[in-house]
Computed example of a mutant assay.
Amino acid sequence: MKKVAKKKMKKILLIIGILVGVTALGIGGYGYYLYEKTKTTVNDMQEEVKMDQPKPVVQGENLKPFSVLLLGVDERKGDKGRSDTMIVASVNPKTEKMFMFSIPRDTRTHIVGKDYEDKINHAYAFGGTQMALDTVENFLDTPIDYYIKVNMESFRDIVDAVGGVEVNNPRAFEYEGNSFPVGAQELNGKEALSYSRMRYEDPKGDLGRNDRQRQVITSIIDKGARVTSITKFDNILSILGDNVKTNMTFDEMKDIQKNYKNARNQIESTEFKSSGKMIGGIYYGIVDDAERTRIQTLLKENLE
Rank of each mutant, 00 (worst) to 15 (best):
R199W: 03
R199Q: 05
R199I: 02
R199N: 03
Y200L: 07
E201R: 05
D202C: 04
D202P: 05
P203V: 06
G205Y: 03
G205E: 06
L207K: 12
G208V: 07
G208S: 04
G208Q: 04
G208H: 04
R209Q: 05
N210T: 13
D211Q: 12
D211T: 08
R212I: 06
R212H: 06
R212A: 05
R212Y: 08
R214Y: 06
Q215G: 04
V216A: 04
V216R: 03
I217G: 02
T218D: 06
I220W: 03
I220N: 03
I221K: 03
D222H: 12
D222W: 02
K223W: 05
K223E: 11
K223N: 14
K223F: 04
G224Q: 07
A225H: 09
A225Q: 07
R226L: 09
R226E: 12
R226D: 15
R226C: 02
V227T: 12
T228L: 14
T228V: 15
S229M: 10
I230R: 02
I230C: 01
T231D: 10
T231M: 06
T231L: 11
T231A: 10
F233T: 15
N235Y: 06
N235D: 15
N235K: 15
I236W: 11
L237V: 12
L237A: 09
S238E: 14
S238V: 08
I239H: 12
L240F: 14
G241Q: 13
D242H: 11
D242W: 02
D242K: 15
V244F: 14
K245D: 14
K245I: 11
N247Q: 10
N247K: 10
E252Q: 15
E252S: 05
M253E: 12
M253H: 03
M253N: 06
I256E: 07
Q257Y: 14
K258Y: 11
K258E: 11
N259S: 11
Y260D: 08
K261E: 07
K261F: 15
A263I: 08
R264F: 08
R264H: 08
N265E: 12
N265G: 04
Q266L: 11
Q266G: 02
I267G: 07
S269Q: 14
T270Q: 10
K273M: 01
K273E: 02
S274L: 02
S274E: 00
G276W: 00
K277R: 10
M278A: 04
I279Y: 01
I279W: 00
G280L: 03
G280C: 04
I282N: 04
I282A: 07
I282L: 12
Y283P: 00
Y284Q: 00
I286K: 00
V287S: 00
V287E: 00
D288G: 01
E291Q: 07
R292S: 01
R292C: 01
T293Q: 13
T293V: 10
I295L: 08
I295E: 01
Q296V: 06
